[in-house]
Design a protein around this nucleic acid. Structure first.
Length: 255
DNA sequence: ATGGTAGTCTAACTA
C-alpha cells in the first residue's frame, strides 16, 4: 500500500498534473493540501474516473484538503475536533485499517507575528487530537505540508534557515518534536540520513533549478505502522513539469 | 538582499 501527500497549490490549476501523477505514481492513498476550491467546485467526477474515491473539505482562495483512495474511505473527520477554525486545514479518514490524518499546517508568515502564534496554537491542538486518535488507531499516519523543516539536513542553507527563521525556528521545531513524542516517526529518516533532500522550492529566484529547497512535507508513522514501512521517498519529477506546484509529492510504501 | 514568482482574482493577500 502506497500512501502519499502533495501540496498542489490550487487543484483547479494542477488537476492535469494530479491525474498524470496518479498514473505514474500509482498511490493507493493520496492526500492533498491547498486545493483552494469550495466543495461544489471539487473535480470529483474526474478523480473518480481515474479510479479514486474522495473526501474533501475546501474553501475559496486559501487552504483546502482532500483524501483520494482506491479503497473505501470511512469515518471522515473534517477539522480538528474541539478547535474552532475557519481555515480548512485538517482532514482524517480510515482506509484499509489505517487512520490517515491529512494536515496543511499554518505557514506562520514571520516569527512573532499573529499568524505565527496561530501556527503554534494550531499545532498544539493537532497534538492533542493525534494523542487521542492514537488510543483508538495504532495503525496511524499523519502526513501533509508541515511548514516546518525538522533539522539542518532538511534545509539548503542552515545559516539562512536558522533558529529565528520562519519554518525552522526553535518554537516550531519544538512543536514538531512534541507531536513526534506521541510515538510518531519521520518516515523519510527511516531510510535515509542524507542531507539535501527537499520537498518544496520557492518559485522565486530559480529555487528549484538551484535546488534551494526545504523538506517540509512529511509522512509521520506510528510505531505499529513503522514496522510495516518498507520504503519512503520524494517525487521530484512533477516539480520539473510545466507550471508546477512549488511542492513535490512525498510517499511511503507499507506492506 | 525587503527583491523575486505563483495563485486568486483585477487590489492585495498568502505563501
Amino acid at each position: 500500500m502506497k500512501i502519499a501527500s502533495w501540496n498542489v497549490n490550487s487543484l483547479n490549476v494542477r488537476l492535469p498534473h494530479l491525474l498524470e501523477w496518479l498514473k505514474i505514481g500509482n498511490p493507493d492513498v493520496l492526500v492533498l493540501q491547498e486545493t483552494k476550491l469550495e466543495d461544489h467546485k471539487f473535480p470529483q467526477a474526474e478523480i473518480e474516473a481515474a479510479g479514486y474515491r474522495v473526501a474533501f473539505d475546501g474553501q475559496k482562495t486559501y487552504n483546502g484538503v482532500a483524501i483520494l483512495s482506491r479503497q473505501d474511505i470511512a469515518d471522515v473527520q473534517k477539522g480538528i475536533p474541539g478547535f474552532a477554525d475557519e481555515q480548512k486545514r485538517a482532514l482524517a479518514a480510515t482506509v484499509g485499517g489505517v487512520r490517515i490524518i491529512d494536515l496543511y499546517v499554518v505557514n506562520g508568515q514571520a516569527v512573532g507575528s499573529e499568524k505565527y502564534d496561530y501556527k503554534l496554537r494550531w499545532l498544539e491542538a493537532v497534538t492533542d487530537w493525534v494523542r487521542d486518535e492514537l488510543t483508538r488507531h495504532p495503525q496511524l499516519v499523519v502526513l501533509g505540508d508541515f511548514n516546518i523543516a525538522p533539522d539542518e539536513r532538511d534545509v539548503h542553507d542552515a545559516a539562512l534557515w536558522n533558529d529565528d527563521s520562519i519554518l525552522t525556528s526553535t518554537a516550531e521545531r519544538a512543536a514538531l518534536k512534541r507531536l513526534l513524542a506521541l510515538g510518531l516517526f519521520d518516515s523519510f529518516r527511516l531510510h535515509s540520513e542524507e542531507a539535501g533532500h527537499f520537498s518544496w522550492w520557492d518559485y522565486r529566484m530559480g529555487g528549484f533549478r538551484r535546488n534551494l529547497g526545504l523538506r517540509i512535507d512529511l509522512v509521520l508513522v506510528s510505531e505499529a505502522l513503522k514496522a510495516r514501512t518498507k520504503a519512503s521517498g520524494i517525487e521530484r519529477e512533477p516539480r520539473t513539469w510545466e507550471r508546477p506546484s512549488d511542492h513535490a509529492p512525498v510517499w511511503i510504501e507499507i506492506e
